[in-house]
């Protein structure tokens, strides 16, 4: 396999995607550096899976251009596929085959000889700590082991770039930690990672994060720089009547956001504002906290909405087979 051309790992210009009447992406301009761990964060229906699918050659854009490792995602799909690994949100393993066979067979699909596929799968089994379960049927693995095997499958052809779509969804903390340790090893070895995630703490380990909403990138920076957009901090108020408290806060010119724990207020000077609020609130306050801004708060400040799934459902049936 020849080396990919120099330049950014990913570059898009005016990328649009339309599904019938639904405009999923509105002119995305994006550049991801080589060796970077890049996260795409946004609520369901924001367009992140569509963007992910276009970049990983699964979908064609309606307009605009996108290059991955210097290759066009429409005209040079084979070149990109030869150099990329992908972990889907849903399992993409043959459950009745052994762990070892899953890796070996995927090696054949990536053009390795039987011998090379066998050797590569042994290296990956060792590296991913799956040697002991190599003969086990895949369906008998734990969730964490399956995800590690998915990662192994994606790395079988020694890719230059990894695409991870909500790759650790449903995993416990330990399994997630192990998974990301492997991904970090890949990045340290010079690989590029482009991922989508719902987990704030996972996005925060990325070198840069793009926040996407309504098919547009609304912010793109390092986690620290994004958090500094909020300034000040975030006030959490739990009251006896959050609905009434929220109405009163709006009257005072604030934009409270309901969360599971109470009302969230992004403010530049929470230390000054909080005592005054507590004194004037028309309902009893049960708990009040001030915390450092999170990416959720950044999103809240930029859009007036939270990042969680209450705000939208993914478009149905938009992602069938790869093209």
């Amino acid at each position: 396999m020849s080396l990919s051309p120099a330049g950014p790992a990913i570059e898009t210009l005016g990328l649009h995607k339309r599904y019938g009447q639904v405009q999923a992406l509105h002119g995305i301009d994006l550049s991801v550096r080589r060796g970077e761990m890049f996260a795409l964060l946004g609520p369901n229906g924001a367009g992140k899976t569509t963007l992910f699918s276009i970049l990983s050659t699964l979908l064609k854009p309606s307009a605009g251009t996108a290059q991955v490792l210097g290759f066009d995602v429409v005209r040079q799909r084979a070149e990109i596929r030869q150099r990329m690994g992908i972990v889907f949100q849903e399992p993409a393993l043959e459950q009745k085959l052994s762990v070892r066979d899953n890796l070996r067979l995927m090696g054949l699909f990536y053009g390795l000889s039987f011998r090379a596929a066998r050797e590569r799968s042994e290296i990956l089994l060792d590296k991913l700590g799956l040697k002991d379960v190599a003969k086990r049927e895949t369906q008998k693995l734990s969730g964490g082991q399956k995800r590690r095997l998915e990662l192994g499958r994606s790395m079988v052809a020694q890719p230059e770039i990894l695409f991870l779509d909500e790759a650790t969804l449903g995993l416990d903390v330990d399994a997630r930690r192990n998974f990301w340790a492997e991904v970090r090893d890949f990045v340290h070895a010079g690989g590029t990672v482009f991922m989508t995630t719902h987990y704030m703490e996972e996005a925060e380990v990325a070198d840069r994060i793009a926040l996407i909403d309504g098919g547009q990138i609304i912010a793109l920076d390092t986690p620290k720089q994004l958090q500094s957009l909020v300034g000040g901090g975030v006030i959490l108020l739990a009251t006896e009547d959050d609905v009434r408290a929220a109405a009163w806060l709006r009257e005072q010119g604030y934009t409270p956001e309901a969360s599971e724990r109470g009302l969230l207020l992004v403010n530049n000077d929470p230390a000054t504002v909080l005592p005054a609020l507590l004194g004037a609130m028309p309902v009893k306050t049960l708990r009040a906290e001030v915390h450092e801004p999170s990416l959720e708060d950044v999103f809240l400040k930029l859009t007036g909405r939270g990042l969680d799934t209450r705000f939208g459902q993914p478009p149905q049936d938009l992602h069938g087979d790869p093209q």
């Binding site: 990983s56 992908i86 849903e90 993409a92 393993l93 995927m106 699909f109 053009g111 499958r153 087979d321």
Partner: peptide, 16 residues
């Protein structure tokens, strides 16, 4: 395979 998602892994491989 299409229903469980496995077909995607095959279709994104560099195989015509």
């Amino acid at each position: 395979d299409r229903q469980i998602g496995f077909l995607k892994a095959v279709l994104v491989a560099p195989v015509s």
